[in-house]
Simulated scan of single mutants.
Amino acid sequence: MTEHEERKQRRLDARSLRGLAHPLRMQLLDALRQHGPATASQLAERLGESSGATSYHLRQLAEHGFVEDAPERGKGRERWWQVVDQGIRFDSADFEDASPEVRGLTEVFLQEGAARHARELSTWLGTRDQWPQPWARATDMSDMTLRLTPDLAVELIGRLHDLIDGYRDRVPDKDTPESEQVRIHTHLFPIETD
């Protein structure tokens, strides 16, 4: 089984949303995805939090299946954590008849996700001059407007996700010159027009 097959995207449901919809938990999960396995203390230092808070929220993420022990990394009593899935997929259709509590958690999850996207983009804009020229040409910040039906919008989202997933099997080794992790944000939403 390849790493791509082992660590696919996880589709959120009401139970898993309860375990994830907290700003620090989402930040912990992102830090582990971007930087690899770490201890609660290392994550606390990276995120400017107390190790008690990171430890508690890591245990909550583990209880809901988002992170797990990375025992090959630990020494003695040191507990290392790693992610379970490559990413998260949120489908609003899964929450249409949700309770008020779950709708509130959905709002926390979506708002924190949007804030994270804005922070990541802002960080890129502030540091883009520090990257080699090939990376300056290999970035995109586009927006497009189409007229679609809901069915066409769902089809487009699926095709975009499939296209991106097709690149997971083409991932170069960490030792490949010029290879870097990249972030891809997709947003599709209706806008009011006159």
Rank of each mutant, 00 (worst) to 15 (best):
D162T: 14
L43T: 03
I88T: 12
T186E: 11
R25T: 00
G104M: 04
G158Y: 09
S99M: 05
D97Y: 09
H35S: 14
W81T: 10
G36K: 06
S179P: 04
K174Y: 08
T127W: 06
R168I: 04
K174P: 06
S50P: 03
G19F: 00
M26F: 00
M141K: 10
Q34L: 15
H57Y: 13
Q181F: 10
R33M: 15
R159Y: 09
P150W: 00
E120T: 05
G74E: 01
E78F: 05
K8P: 03
L163Y: 09
R147I: 09
E192S: 05
S92G: 08
R11T: 15
L105P: 04
K75A: 09
V182Q: 06
R33I: 06
M141C: 13
E155F: 11
R170H: 13
S16R: 10
R59C: 02
S99C: 07
H187E: 11
A138M: 09
L125C: 10
G126P: 00
P150C: 00
H161E: 15
D94C: 07
H35V: 11
D194N: 08
A114K: 09
V83W: 11
E155L: 14
L163M: 07
L188K: 01
D69Y: 12
H22M: 02
P177E: 07
T123P: 02
Q82G: 07
D30I: 06
G52R: 10
P190W: 00
S50V: 04
P23D: 00
S179V: 02
K8F: 05
R77Y: 08
R59L: 06
R18M: 10
D140H: 15
D151Q: 15
D30Y: 04
